[in-house]
Simulated assay, not measured.
Amino acid sequence: MSEKQFDIFFKTIEVNIRQQTKVKRITLADLAQLIDMTEAGFYKMLSSESIKVKTLKKVAEVLQQPVEFFLKEQPQTEKAQSQYIMPPHEAYLAEPPSVYQKENESLQKQIRLLEDQLKDKEKIIQLLSYRT
């Protein structure tokens, strides 16, 4: 791959990412956060033309497109973009809301368990301090 082809390849990925974030109505900063990157790191990745396949897979998952979507030029017309539009309330979700509800409940249980463990440890410390 020539240097010019290499530049075009990464520019295509960047353009497709930017296009899909607009279609999904999220910012690049939001996308960075959703794929566990800092905003600065995300922009550096785009500008330095060094996106990892692992990162592109995360981007594809969040933007609900196959990885291949980002590798080839996409039509830029309004009509072509409209086929990818999702309702705004679903645009931020990589999974159905029920999955997040279950995860939230699980995390709440873990928090309660950890709080109980902390209280037990505080009691143990208190009892041990009386012994000395």
Rank of each mutant, 00 (worst) to 15 (best):
M1Q: 12
E3I: 06
K4F: 04
Q5F: 13
Q5V: 03
F6I: 03
D7W: 03
D7P: 03
I8T: 07
I8C: 00
I8N: 08
F10V: 01
K11C: 06
N16G: 10
Q20I: 05
Q20W: 05
V23N: 11
I26N: 10
I26F: 01
I26C: 05
T27Y: 15
L28I: 10
A29G: 09
A29T: 13
L31A: 02
L34A: 08
L34G: 02
L34T: 03
E39L: 03
A40V: 08
G41K: 02
G41H: 01
F42D: 01
Y43A: 00
K44I: 02
L46I: 03
L46P: 04
L46T: 06
E49D: 07
E49P: 01
E49T: 00
K52M: 09
V53H: 08
K54W: 09
K54V: 12
K54G: 06
T55Y: 12
K57S: 12
K57G: 03
K58A: 12
A60Q: 13
V62N: 01
V62I: 13
V62Q: 02
L63C: 05
L63V: 08
P66H: 04
P66E: 04
V67F: 12
E68G: 04
F69Y: 15
F69W: 09
L71Y: 06
E78W: 05
E78V: 15
E78D: 15
K79R: 15
A80N: 04
S82F: 14
Y84I: 02
M86I: 06
M86Q: 12
P87D: 15
H89C: 14
H89Y: 06
E90D: 11
E90R: 09
A91R: 15
A91W: 15
E95D: 00
S98A: 13
V99P: 01
Y100G: 15
K102I: 06
E103A: 10
E105S: 15
E105G: 14
S106Q: 14
K109R: 11
Q110H: 06
I111H: 10
R112A: 04
L113C: 10
L113F: 14
D116R: 00
D116E: 11
D116T: 08
D116L: 10
Q117E: 07
L118D: 01
L118Y: 04
L118I: 08
K119F: 05
K121L: 15
K123I: 09
I125Q: 03
Q126A: 14
Q126W: 13
L128M: 13
S129W: 01
Y130P: 02
R131W: 10
